[in-house]
Simulated assay, not measured.
Amino acid sequence: MEIRNIIFDFGGVIINIHHSEVEKAFKNLGINQFETLFSQATQSDIFQRLEIGTISPGNFRNYLRSIIGKEIPDHKLDFAWNQIIGNYPPHRIKLLSELKKNYNLFLLSNTNIIHYRYYIEKFRNEFGFEFQSLFNKTYWSFEISERKPNHSAFTFVLKDNNLIASETLFIDDSVQNIDAAEQMGFQTYLLKNDTDLADIFGEGKIIL
């Protein structure tokens, strides 16, 4: 079926992500047991709660301080936490501008407000316009209280725009998210580590 709409993931698809830089940043704060602390935080579901907006940034920082055992200022915690955010390759931004001429573009991202504030400002400073203007609409998990791979996150986007799943291409770098989208009838593309977003398109059109 003809593709009329494209839903993009954000991290690892549009913007680069650097997981190792977070560990380095926390080690620079004197926290050498980062992997243990990260595992403990993951098991507590604190990251997911931040991503769907059920815990405030302040409470999130307080939780980190409680497991770190140090009184680290907010701005230093945020700086370390934001080091996971990499760069915006300019060719991907240009590609999105070209694709918008031929498709309805949407973004569906699992993210949190601390990261969001950082990379939205980063984009504005680097490119001189608003990131959201590249899309018909953007959906951030902390704003809609839904996250992938829950079917409800995809349903939210479909219903909000009267989209048909079979006419919509979903691009993500997570197998789990791709599987969920396929179960709902989306056309999908799993973006692997050795593939760039630009490899899927040519002259503003899909070349899958």
Rank of each mutant, 00 (worst) to 15 (best):
M1D: 11
M1I: 05
E2Y: 00
N5Q: 08
I6M: 08
F8H: 07
F10W: 08
F10I: 08
V13E: 14
V13L: 10
H19P: 02
E23C: 08
K24M: 03
F26M: 12
K27H: 14
N28P: 05
G30P: 10
Q33S: 15
F34C: 08
F34W: 15
F38K: 13
S39F: 07
Q40M: 07
A41W: 04
T42S: 10
S44L: 04
S44G: 05
D45L: 03
I46H: 08
I46A: 06
F47W: 12
F47L: 01
R49W: 02
E51W: 00
I52W: 04
F60I: 03
N62K: 11
Y63A: 07
R65H: 01
I67M: 04
I68T: 07
I68V: 15
E71W: 00
E71I: 00
I72K: 08
P73R: 01
P73Q: 03
H75R: 09
F79W: 14
A80G: 06
A80T: 09
W81H: 01
N82D: 06
Q83H: 01
Q83E: 15
I84T: 00
I84A: 02
I84Q: 00
G86V: 02
Y88M: 10
P89I: 05
R92D: 01
K94E: 15
L95S: 10
L96Y: 11
E98M: 10
L99K: 11
L99D: 10
N102K: 12
N102M: 06
Y103V: 09
Y103C: 12
Y103P: 02
L107G: 07
N110D: 14
N110I: 12
N112S: 06
I114L: 02
H115W: 02
Y118V: 03
Y119S: 04
E121N: 15
E121D: 15
K122W: 03
F123N: 07
R124N: 10
E126Y: 07
G128I: 14
G128P: 09
G128T: 14
S133C: 06
S133R: 14
T138M: 02
T138H: 03
E146G: 12
R147W: 08
P149R: 07
N150E: 13
H151C: 11
H151G: 15
A153P: 00
F154L: 09
F154I: 13
V157C: 12
L158P: 02
L158T: 04
L158V: 07
K159V: 10
D160C: 07
N162I: 11
L163K: 06
I164H: 09
E167F: 01
E167T: 00
T168Q: 04
T168E: 11
F170P: 08
I171M: 12
I171K: 11
D172H: 01
D173N: 13
S174V: 03
S174L: 06
V175A: 13
N177G: 05
A181R: 02
A181S: 08
Q183M: 09
Q183C: 05
G185W: 01
G185K: 03
Q187K: 08
T188D: 04
T188Y: 08
L191S: 06
K192M: 05
N193R: 04
T195K: 13
D196K: 03
A198N: 13
F201Y: 13
F201P: 05
G202N: 04
G204Q: 11
I206F: 14
L208F: 13
